[in-house]
């Protein structure tokens, strides 16, 4: 029997997801044995034509990491979709937009202005910006054009499965490969990690408060952090309340709160808002009855950059997707 054809591809990503696959080390060799890798830019030669020449659905599964922000990336995602029976969104960028998705707080113009003009080390008195087409004495040079907005993979093509995490840990990746090879995949649309909140498997869960007595929002750098106690009990925002489990509490292990790279549980429409709602219910104040709306409002001001925090990994997949930009 022919080995199943599998493709790995990257769109706008940092390379961490590729490292995550390489980190499988010996397990990777096992996978490589069981499948026929038809595309893997980091390790194998690749020509777009070869993929184009495949029959529709000839690839059993494509694992695509990275967000989508150029036309080229979109085309490649569409091509792989057409040629694949299954598409896996691999890692947080493809899944929910991740930290590079914070670029949806601005747009191309905002980025250009800062990067090429106003950054302190840049000397650009003529106001030169990179262009899609440039005439040089010898000919013409081209660059791809960027979308103003970062898109997740499933905003571009249909996605069958999601492998969460920034980056996905080895066991989550291996489980996905194994399920694929053994034909054990769950229902389409599933995120391949347990559908329980990180809190529910967290060692600190016992000290997790129902309600907070301290009316304070502490930031990680401001206080000594007790390594045994739930972050919330220490007034520090931890997103474990709404984040899918499966990472092995990687951040909590080194005494840092969760920032939600595994994304939401099933059925959540807006991960950032769901987290905010959860945090807002826990941060109940003891003497609330004595507080006016204004007092409460002042207190909430202490929770700085709520959008950046609650959407740290998921702005592109939120209901609004991006900051609304002024029309010119």
């Amino acid at each position: 029997m022919a080995k199943p054809k599998v493709a790995f591809y990257w769109n706008a990503s940092c390379g961490g997801c590729e490292e995550a696959v390489i980190d499988l080390a010996e397990d990777l060799l096992k996978v490589a044995d069981a499948v026929d890798i038809v595309l893997w830019p980091v390790a194998l030669d690749f020509k777009k034509k070869d993929v184009e020449n495949l029959k529709d659905n000839e690839i059993v599964a494509s694992f695509i990491n990275g967000a989508v922000r150029t036309e080229e990336q979109k085309e490649m995602a569409e091509l792989l979709r057409a040629k694949s029976q299954l598409v896996f969104a691999f890692g947080s960028c493809a899944h929910e937009g991740c930290i590079p998705g914070l670029a949806n707080f601005t747009n191309r113009e905002g980025i250009f202005e800062r990067v090429y003009k106003t950054t302190e080390s840049t000397k650009n008195p003529e106001g030169i910006f990179p262009k899609v087409k440039t005439k040089v004495p010898e000919g013409e040079l081209t660059l791809p054009e960027f979308f103003d907005t970062v898109y997740t993979l499933d905003q571009t093509v249909e996605v069958d499965y999601y492998i969460p995490g920034c980056a996905p840990p080895p066991d989550i990746i291996m489980n996905a490969f194994t399920a694929l090879l053994e034909g054990n995949l769950p229902e389409k649309g599933s995120v391949l990690s347990p559908n329980i909140a990180l809190c529910d498997e967290c060692d600190r869960n016992e000290s997790k408060p129902e309600k907070l007595e301290i009316p304070e929002f502490n930031r990680v750098h401001q206080i000594e952090i007790d390594p045994e106690k739930c972050f919330l009990a220490q007034g520090i925002i931890c997103m474990g309340i709404s984040t899918r489990s499966g990472c092995g509490q990687r951040c909590i292990n080194v005494n840092m709160p969760c920032r939600g790279c595994f994304g939401p549980l099933d059925g959540v429409k807006d991960f950032g808002l769901r987290t905010m709602a959860g945090i807002a219910s826990i941060f109940a104040l003891e003497n609330e009855e004595n507080l006016s709306e204004e007092d409460l409002s002042k207190l909430m001001d202490k929770l700085v950059d709520p959008a950046g925090l609650f959407y740290m990994y998921s702005l592109p997949s939120s209901i609004l997707r991006r900051k609304r930009m002024e029309e010119k």
Partner: peptide
């Protein structure tokens, strides 16, 4: 490619 960490 460009991602704009400086800005966002």
């Amino acid at each position: 490619e460009l991602r704009g960490f400086e800005k966002f």
